[in-house]
């Protein structure tokens, strides 16, 4: 892939004067070469809720070549917890379209487009048009399919979600670690989860299981019942003995809360940029942000 800058009519492989000024502080970190690589990559971002908005913001500011905001869903009141790209009085109901103007405003050097077709309706090779796919806000079964497609076409993939103040992402860029459904095998059955995993792993497994059973994420207006349901899912895991340690987490899993969309959105965007700049952290494949412990940690699962 060449590193032509289309928007500024600059020479092939050269950054325009204007870009050099805007990107100066980051070029001093990752160098001109890093910046040129960034400005040649095309990103597909699926899901434009609060987390999607953060990921889009970070990648657009940093100066990727293009980003496609893909979402077939409509704005909800819950977006107001973290979706800062959608104006409160937006007449546009589709999330991707409603985000487009403010997303583009972040950096005119990046080609930003909105795509309102569901990922489920796309052809299997759709992902191969992109250098990186970042998927958020899908059901686990969709993630599984996206992961299989990306693996097949050797497209770098990130899957990320935020539940309240808790969040995680999965990275598949070396195409040799476990696939999504292998990491979280219990999402579609009340089967057992692996032993000796960190608390955030069991929490995530329970949340995915909840999504499959209830066909939605936990929601604030049903919070008491949802907490009880999550608790029962966690209790069903064989290796869990200290269920009360989950209590603090369970009370804070609703909406996408902006501090955590901020953290996960930045961590996943930075991981993707590291991949673009050939400095992938490749010995890990899952990242959890544990808001109770203030810990952001990679694992190989």
């Amino acid at each position: 892939m060449d590193s032509e800058i289309t928007n500024n009519g600059g020479d092939v492989g050269k950054l325009s004067k204007d870009e050099l000024k805007v990107y100066d502080r980051q070029i001093r970190l990752w160098g001109h070469d890093g910046q040129k690589k960034l400005s040649s990559w095309n990103v597909l971002l699926i899901g434009m809720q609060g987390l999607g908005a953060e990921i889009a913001k970070n990648l657009i500011l940093s100066g990727v070549h293009s980003i496609t905001l893909k979402d077939d869903t409509n704005i909800s009141i819950l977006d107001r917890c973290s979706q800062f790209l959608i104006p409160p009085d937006s007449e546009e109901r589709n999330r991707a379209k409603a985000s487009l103007a403010n997303a583009q405003k972040l950096n005119p050097n990046v080609t930003v487009t909105a795509d309102i077709k569901s990922i489920e309706e796309e052809e299997e090779d759709f992902v191969s048009k992109f250098d990186v796919v970042i998927a958020t806000e899908c059901f686990p079964a969709i993630y599984r399919k996206i992961n299989e497609n990306c693996r097949k076409h050797k497209v770098n993939l990130y899957i990320a979600d935020v539940f309240g103040f808790f969040g995680y992402f999965v990275q598949d860029v070396t195409f040799e670690h476990n696939l999504y459904h292998e990491i979280f095998p219990n999402y579609d059955q009340r089967s057992n989860v692996s032993e000796n995993r960190p608390l955030p792993y069991y929490l995530t497994s329970a949340l995915l299981r909840f999504q499959c059973e209830s066909n939605r994420k936990p929601v604030p207006d049903n919070c008491e019942k949802d907490i009880a349901e999550l608790k029962s899912i966690i209790s069903s895991f064989e290796h869990i003995t200290n269920i009360e340690t989950y209590d603090e987490y369970l009370g804070e899993l609703f909406c996408e809360m902006s501090p955590t969309t901020s953290i996960i959105g930045a961590a996943v965007a930075q991981a993707a940029m590291n991949t673009i700049m050939d400095r992938t952290i490749d010995n890990f494949n899952v990242f959890f942000y544990d808001h109770v412990e203030h810990r952001g940690q990679y694992f190989k699962l």
Partner: peptide, 28 residues
């Protein structure tokens, strides 16, 4: 490029680090 770094004492800066710190500040 390098003289500007030294003469201006420029510290490199990226959006993602600020976003993570900005999130953690509000959690704190």
């Amino acid at each position: 490029f390098n003289i500007k770094s030294m003469a201006g004492n420029i510290i490199p800066a990226i959006p993602t680090a600020n976003a993570i710190i900005g999130g953690q500040i509000v959690i704190h």
